[in-house]
Design a protein around this nucleic acid. Structure first.
Length: 234
DNA sequence: CCCTGATTCGC
DNA sequence: GCGAATCAGG
């Protein structure tokens, strides 16, 4: 894959939005996380708070005694001339995580949302103009900054009628049958929920399915093929 | 272990 | 210019 203009634009937009290099790489496809980071640096994109850089100015590590050590000892470089790591101005109200990720926290009885700060000194606003598109709005710009969208509160969903009376994952304990009914991901997936056979994870009926007498080798059926080709290799 | 970004350096 | 390898922190 090559870095076409479109892909570079997408990289810039997502990088500015706060997406991680992995997310960008996955979104673009055909490139690795390292490729995204390397490209971002080559483009001169603003570096973002890095776990490594947070500490800053550490004792130099002793070079590892490996056979393939081809790295010269990195000289203690003077830190970047930047006036410290600048936090992204557009998400200062929240904590570290990016504002793009919707917090999945159900807020049962949270009253009025915290009022957004109205004072903007020299803050640059980024306004989304569609998927992956952003425009800058600096203090000198004529158009007034667009106020951030009001935070959306997520309310807990009511249990769908299909699952209302069924045994859900949260209902499991060692006294009910954990035999799965249906398939995970399906809307009505649940568990058997009958009284479990004491000492077993299933009810008597499902124990009969789960535990079968060992047959002599010569009478066994050949094992069925694995559904997805066996264990994952990574 | 997993994740993250930064950096280096052979290609 | 590119990106795998590596480093280093959380």
């Amino acid at each position: 894959m090559s870095w076409t203009d479109e892909r570079i634009d997408r990289l810039k937009a997502m990088w500015a939005e706060g997406a991680t290099a992995s997310q960008i790489a996955e979104d673009l496809g055909g490139v690795s996380r390292n490729a995204v980071i390397g490209k971002a640096h080559r483009l001169g994109l603003e570096s973002r708070p890095s776990p490594v850089k947070a500490g800053e100015e550490k004792a130099k590590k002793a070079p590892k005694a490996t056979a393939k050590a081809h790295k010269p000892a990195p000289p203690p470089k003077a830190a970047a001339a930047k006036p410290a790591a600048t936090p992204a101005p557009w998400d200062d109200a929240d904590d570290s995580e990016t504002a793009s990720k919707a917090a999945a926290t159900p807020a049962p009885a949270s009253p009025a949302p915290a009022p957004q700060r109205a004072k903007e000194g020299s803050t640059i606003q980024y306004r989304s103009v569609g998927p992956g598109g952003f425009i800058r709005q600096g203090p000198g710009d004529t158009q007034a900054p667009i106020p951030p969208a009001p935070p959306r509160r997520l309310v807990p969903a009511k249990p769908s009628p299909e699952v209302a009376d069924k045994t859900s994952l949260l209902d499991l304990n060692d006294r009910v049958c954990r035999w799965p009914m249906g398939h995970p991901g399906e809307p009505d997936f649940h568990f058997c929920g009958q009284a479990a056979n004491p000492g077993y994870p299933y009810c008597v009926a499902h124990c009969g399915v789960a535990y079968q007498a060992q047959l002599p080798r010569r009478d066994r059926r050949p094992p069925p093929p694995l559904p997805f080709g066996g264990p994952r290799v990574r």
